Computed example of a mutant assay.
Amino acid sequence: MMQILIAPDKFRGSLEAAEVCHAVEEGILFAYPDARIIAIPLADGGEGTTKILTDKSGGKYISAEVHDPLGRLMNASYGLSGDGKTAFIEMASASGLKLLSAHEYNPRLTNTFGTGQLILDAIEKGVGKIILGIGGSATTDGGIGMAAALGYHFLDENGKILIPIGESLSKINSIDYQNADTRLLSVSITVACDVTNPLFGLNGAAHIYGPQKGADPDMVKELDRGLQNLTKVAKKAFGKDVSDVPGAGAAGGLGAGCLWFLNAELKEGVGIVMEQTNIAQHIQDSALVITGEGKVDEQTLSGKVVKGLADLCGSYDIPLAVVCGTLMITPEETRSAGITYAVSVLNRPMDLDSAQNNAYTLVKDATFNLVRLFFCNK
């Protein structure tokens, strides 16, 4: 009996990763009823990561009252592993763009304080390890909001404590860490990060991601100068410049903030999820791996679920098939990425609403056809 591993990301706007698994499984069994199927939903460190890791560990969800990106009280949740030793937190649940209306987007005024509150709550639960996903932020505060929730103070030239928001970055003259929570020293924090941008500069947090959070050109320049200033002050306080570490610019500079204020480790999000789900062993035991996501493009080939799986499958010489909503890479790119077969699920002209509403059936049908191709004699 042939084993087929299903390991997709979500199809944003239409199917969660677990739903993609179900659709793919239906397509496989229709084409190859005797297949042995292993289904493992994946994520790249962004939305959905907490659920996948919490469920995989047999854990539970914890709710905590925190402040949203604009300082309003709300309830946010995070995952706690079955053994109670690891917390799985998504910064977007407390500091995400999804929590704001479009007219509220303003990275000068938003901050990551709520994310720090979730970290604090997890520490108070006695965890020894935190896995923090930092995708989907509404912020460009360099992590100072998060740090403030954990006891750090950011002072201006007169020694006055600044409100830890984006517009304060350029005013920071010193960092007071005397009241920082000492329990941070005994907690291992791994940050799931799916981008490699530096903290500042034309490829940095403000210039690349600021506009989608509501920053106009002048605000982008202001925030970029602020992140440069934070780097200067933090380097003096902590003795290290992390601004060029790949991922430092993730989530509005929260990547760098985690390195400075939490002594965290930045890792590729998909790598963390694959490690936690023991995906490598399942790949070795499979005849075919099927993955997918809503759009496969050049960004997919640099740190997303599909690329992570392609690398692993290549190391074990196991074929990888990709089903997706939109296929935007060339045959040459497909081959060089280590993808055996890639197909869009769109089998006829249709608008976006129709594609999203029919995504489950489209994924199932595309999977049927690709499995027949791989196992036509079965």
Rank of each mutant, 00 (worst) to 15 (best):
Q212P: 01
A321S: 14
E16I: 03
A264W: 06
I131G: 04
S344D: 06
G114Q: 08
L15W: 11
A321V: 14
K235F: 10
I318S: 02
N377K: 10
N106L: 09
V191H: 03
F154Y: 10
G314Y: 06
L320K: 04
D285M: 10
K60N: 12
G303W: 08
C258I: 00
A237P: 01
K98Y: 04
G204K: 15
E25C: 05
S95L: 09
V306E: 11
T50F: 01
G159S: 05
A280V: 13
A205C: 04
L155E: 02
A251M: 09
G214Y: 07
I38D: 00
Y78F: 15
L227Q: 08
D216R: 14
L80N: 04
K160A: 15
G46S: 08
V66G: 02
H153D: 14
A205R: 14
I172S: 00
G46D: 01
L309E: 10
E332I: 06
D34E: 13
A39I: 07
L132G: 03
A234E: 02
G252E: 03
I163D: 03
I4W: 05
G136A: 10
G128N: 05
G13D: 00
M146W: 02
Q356Y: 05
T334K: 12
E222V: 12
L362G: 11
E25S: 11
A94M: 02
E275T: 12
D317A: 13
K378G: 01
T231V: 07
F154C: 04
I89S: 03
T86I: 13
G27M: 13
Q228N: 08
K10L: 03
A17Q: 04
L312G: 07
I172V: 07
M91H: 08
D311P: 00
I165G: 03
D194C: 14
V345R: 05
L223A: 08
Q117L: 07
A180R: 14
M350C: 12
L97P: 00
A138Y: 03
A248I: 03
A280F: 15
V305W: 14
D44P: 00
G303R: 13
G136S: 09
G13F: 02
E265D: 04
E16R: 13
A237Y: 05
A148R: 11
